[in-house]
Simulated assay, not measured.
Amino acid sequence: MSCEIIRLIDHPEIRERAARWFHEKWDVPLEAYIKSMEECSGERKSVPQWYIAIEGNRIIGGLGVIENDFHDRKDLAPNVCAVYVEEDRRCGGVAGALLKGACADMKDRGIDRLYLITGHTSFYERYGWEFLCMVQGDGEPHRTRMYLHRS
């Protein structure tokens, strides 16, 4: 893997570019990403936080840590969200490096439990995540899997 994992809080100069990248991948309003990314740059808040994988000058992956990723179990927080790696960079350890970096940073911030929702059934287990329960996504017709990571 030849990319660098960076914390957006340390690189505010790419905030807008990162927000646009996430918006293109997930079709969540651009303004929502910008707002969340601006919140992470305030007084060293623990959540939200955003992490980017950069290769050269290209964003090849990213994820966020937010309070709730649009599901009914508000007690299971904070949540890893918007995990994405460009198709031509998958299977190269980018997602694992992003997850490892985010979990370590959150632990340094005093957060030793993270949650995420996903339709994947085996991917996250490779990185120490455990299936926890099924949750109902906001506006979703079916329940989806909730995972837990303990640092």
Rank of each mutant, 00 (worst) to 15 (best):
W21L: 00
E86H: 00
A32K: 06
I117H: 10
K45A: 09
E39G: 00
R90E: 06
H120N: 08
S46H: 02
K35Y: 13
I54Y: 11
G92Y: 06
I66T: 14
E125R: 15
A19K: 05
E38H: 09
E55G: 06
H120A: 14
P78G: 09
N57V: 04
D88W: 07
E130D: 15
V94Y: 02
R58P: 11
K100G: 13
G62D: 04
H11P: 09
I60H: 00
R20K: 05
A32Y: 10
D27P: 01
W129C: 03
L98A: 05
D108T: 05
Y33I: 08
E125I: 10
A53H: 06
W129F: 06
E87S: 12
S36P: 06
R109V: 02
K45I: 03
S41L: 11
D72Y: 10
E67I: 05
A18R: 07
R58D: 12
T118Q: 05
G61D: 12
R89W: 07
F131A: 00
D10G: 03
F22P: 04
E125D: 13
E24N: 07
R73M: 01
G96A: 06
G42I: 15
R44F: 11
I14P: 00
I60G: 08
Y33E: 10
H11V: 04
A102M: 14
Y33M: 07
T121K: 11
A104T: 07
D27V: 01
D88G: 02
W26A: 05
L99W: 08
R15Y: 01
E125T: 13
K74N: 06
R113D: 03
G42W: 02
R7D: 09
E16R: 11
G62P: 07
K25L: 07
L30W: 11
C103Y: 01
V83E: 10
R73D: 00
F70P: 02
H120V: 00
Y51H: 15
G64F: 08
K74Y: 11
D108N: 12
L99D: 05
E67S: 08
K74L: 04
L132R: 07
S46T: 09
G92R: 02
V83T: 11
